[in-house]
Simulated scan of single mutants.
Amino acid sequence: MTAPLLELRDLAKGFPVRDAIGRRRGAVRAVDGVSLSVPKGSVLAIVGESGCGKSTLGRLALRLIEADAGEILLEGEDLRGLSARALRARRRDMQLIFQDPFASLDPRMTVEQAVAEPLRLHGIVPRAQEAQRVAELLSRVGLRPELARRWPHEFSGGQRQRIAIARALASQPKLIIGDEPVSALDVSVQAQVVNLLQDLIRELGLTFVLISHDLGVVRHIADRVAVMYLGRIVEEGPTRQVFGNPRHPYTRALLAAVPGQGHANAPLLEGDIPSPINPPSGCRFRTRCPYAQALCAEQVPPLEGASHLAACHFQNSLPPAVAGQDADTGGERLRRLQAYFTDQTQKTGELA
């Protein structure tokens, strides 16, 4: 088995909740005891509803925010034990692609300045070679090098995201975390950027963590999927197994909400997500689960399994998840869309 590049062990993070005059009234447990392993060269997707803690988990993994407890191991080295100087040097190996490319690019910097900044911070190339390296990076993400002297506002959303990807690649990282990297883009441009990310992962041997709510994109690009609910992982396993035979009721409900996934035996979710300040006892999903029993309120279900894990007391006795004939409609549609826009790009020589 490939050695893990990134390991998270019992990671936890809470945010204080205060009243109108500043008194602490509790804490939101955004991430609560999460453990994950990401092998070198693989793509792990983290999915779940808004507010489940997936973006917080990504920022914790890069130490952009500090964890309350747990370990963050990059190539076996605990990032939480590094000094500020050592962490800054280690950041060359890990980068983040943000959801909104316009907000993540400094409007006061040209494209050349933005992409060259990591080169200068980490001393990757001599100053005289920066312009050449920036041109190479822009070409790699499908942009013409002569665009380097333009400003971010002069580009479309898809082009800005390509610039953000070029900046992430500048430090020659081993790990990239993409926090909803295509959700802010038009569907047609999403297909282009997904194609680009897949090519870069394959050609550069990158390890990629994709944070997303788009199950069609996840199914197309990820090797493994981790499903989060209220700060905890409730299911994790190979993408084909999680989509084809989901073992947790929450995963089944997510798939049933997507047209074309075909999980006929999975009822749609009802009710609201419980308050993360005071989550339910035992299984946090029990208040919305059609299969909940008394045991679910009394005991926290462990995340169990071999390569396909689920945190459900009754995962082995649930009704089978029936996949219809159109179960791959979302993936096929995305592939056709990618092929179409790849063809259009080759004809026009332009990218959005």
Score class of each variant (00 low, 15 high):
Glu146Arg: 05
Asp93Phe: 05
Gln99Leu: 04
Gly48Phe: 14
Ala266Thr: 13
Arg29Lys: 15
Ala226Arg: 12
Gly231Asp: 12
Tyr250Ile: 05
Val187Gln: 02
Pro249Asn: 07
Glu203Asp: 12
Ala253Gln: 08
Tyr291Pro: 02
Gly305Val: 09
Ile124Leu: 15
Leu79Gly: 03
Tyr340Met: 12
Met94Asp: 14
Tyr229His: 13
Arg59Ser: 06
Ala327Cys: 07
Thr342Ile: 06
Glu130Asp: 01
Val43Lys: 14
Gln159Thr: 05
Asp179Ser: 04
Val189Asn: 00
Ala67Met: 06
Ile165Pro: 05
Val234Ala: 08
Gln338Glu: 12
Gly262Trp: 11
Ala339His: 10
Pro276Met: 11
Thr207Gln: 08
Val17Gly: 02
Pro16Met: 10
His122Asn: 03
Ala256Asp: 10
Arg219Asn: 14
Val182Thr: 08
Ala294Phe: 00
Thr342Val: 06
Arg92Ile: 08
Gly282Asp: 00
Glu146Gly: 02
Asp199Phe: 01
Val28Arg: 11
Glu77Ala: 12
Gln132Met: 04
Gln241Tyr: 02
Ser317Pro: 00
Glu236Ala: 15
Gly70Ser: 08
Gly324Met: 02
Ala339Met: 08
Leu268Gly: 13
Ala67His: 03
Arg29Gln: 15
Pro267His: 11
Gly123His: 12
Ala321Arg: 01
Ser37Thr: 15
Leu204Cys: 00
Arg127Ala: 14
Cys283Trp: 01
Asp68Ile: 02
Asp93Trp: 09
Glu66Gly: 07
Leu200Cys: 00
Leu255Ile: 11
Pro16Tyr: 08
Thr110Ile: 06
Ala352Ser: 10
Arg18Leu: 12
Ser35Trp: 15
Pro274Asn: 09
Ala89Tyr: 00
Cys283Asp: 01
Pro16Phe: 11
Leu119Asp: 08
Leu143Lys: 07
Leu96His: 01
Gln241Leu: 15
Leu105Ser: 06
Leu318His: 03
Gly81Glu: 05
Arg120Glu: 15
Ile277Ser: 01
Val218Ser: 13
Glu270Met: 12
His248Arg: 10
Arg80Val: 15
Phe314Pro: 00
Glu270Lys: 15
